[in-house]
Amino acid sequence: MRSRFDRELDLLNNELIEMGSLVEKSIENVTQALINRDRELAKVVIKADEEIDMLENNIESRCLKLILQQHPVAGDLRLISSILKMITDLERIGDQAQDIGEIILTLSQEDTIKDLIHLSQMAKATTKMVRESIDAFVNRDMDLANQVIEYDDVVDDLFVIIKDELISLIRDDVGNGEQSIDFLMIAKYFERIGDHAQNIAEWVVFSITGEHAGERKIQD
């Protein structure tokens, strides 16, 4: 029964996993590019966004085709509608990785004004969130999805720490201003990535239970 539909759903699942892996890779790359001031790797991240966008379009088309042809209901409908929402979050994460990559290209070549300890912690924390939100989707793992949702607080706290550090650096020397602003924007992008990963985890919960995990955090 419905074997064609089930095959299509499998394809959809696989495409989402592929998109998730690409996005995850982009964040990892952009983190490395930031830490090592690797302009070439930053360019790889910028370029990868095209592929992520293309996958988003493919998945969206497949979802719309399935809605049109199969009139999904119940678990099938929740799955397809969740995927439609998740790809928007994944696409935004890709964009934000690209945005960070572009900042890396414009960062001045002078020495960094501070160690990037907290920023790299933040990068790792958001990478973990994205990876685990995708894992939660693949394994239909409610506990993991809820952990991702909780973990967003860690990223938010790191953002506040970084912001405070940068403010005091500017206060010490206005010459730190340009780099501080760049780092603040990068931190903000990571913080946003965390929010999108949380959204993905919430859609995982919705696809399993039909209920929203909590208030949607961002609407961009």
Binding site: G75, R78, E211
Partner: peptide, 13 residues
């Protein structure tokens, strides 16, 4: 959208 019984889900899907 969220049938409680698996038999319902199996039928409607």
């Amino acid at each position: 959208s969220t049938p409680k019984d698996k038999r319902t889900e199996d039928y409607i899907t």
